[in-house]
Design a binder for these strands. Structure first.
Lengths: 115, 115
DNA sequence: TCAATATGTCGTATGTTTGCTACATTGAAC
DNA sequence: GTTCAATGTAGCAAACATACGACATATTGA
């Protein structure tokens, strides 16, 4: 019996977009890379793994995820590549999450709280 | 050769916390459930799957994830269970994401943008 | 030209997530 | 008590994610 175990595309665009943003942030290594870039502003790929408990090639794959998501951008400087944060994308993500939270958070108190 | 393919716990607590929050939000069904509860305020489990393109038991598993994460809470009413959002948890998550984004977003312009 | 350096991709082992059907449990209604 | 309805859990298959070593590529510099 064959089961379709990925029905993500049956949800609406906004739900898929938020889920995708969240997926990219769902590994501590990728959070750590964003935080590292926010402090260092610009860093060479090779140096990133010095700060993380992961192999260089594993970091390279996490960088690829962040690059594909548009969160970081690389500039080639000879045979070195410098990565930096894409502020526009971060602002877009911040807005999307805030919209979700602000729409959800209300002063409604469910009956399960009223005891 | 044995490889440890989960090094999440080697990152710091804040990074793990953000990654875990993100993981919970990384499926459009869970985003949809949060949005649905924000509109309906309170809803019976069985009715949730009426709004989603998923089987009842699959929804039940997504509800379990949200319950474990503390995002939703259920109150038993006879043999029915009503779910509602936990505003405290949503506020906590909102703050955590905003801290990440606000710490990362700056007016720094990388050399790769200056052309 | 050839070695060293910096980086990325491929292959693969392992673990996690997703979605369903089948089954178990519990309360309501008769 | 038996049946029906509401819900959850177990088990399974397919797909996806994670991590690393081995390999490929490309630039620098002797």
């Amino acid at each position: 019996m064959i089961i379709n175990n990925n029905k993500s595309n049956e949800f609406n665009a906004e739900q898929q977009r938020l889920a995708e943003f969240s997926r990219v942030l769902s590994h501590p290594a990728r959070i750590a890379i964003i935080q590292l870039l926010s402090v260092k502003k610009e860093i060479k790929t090779g140096n990133i793994s010095d700060f993380l408990p992961l192999c260089r090639t594993t970091v390279s794959q996490h960088l690829k995820e962040l690059r594909n998501a548009g969160i970081i951008e690389g500039s080639i400087d000879g045979h070195k590549i410098h990565y930096c944060l894409n502020m526009d994308k971060l602002n877009e993500m911040k807005s999307a999450f805030n919209l979700l939270f602000n729409s959800s958070i209300s002063s409604f108190m469910c009956s399960c709280k009223q005891q």
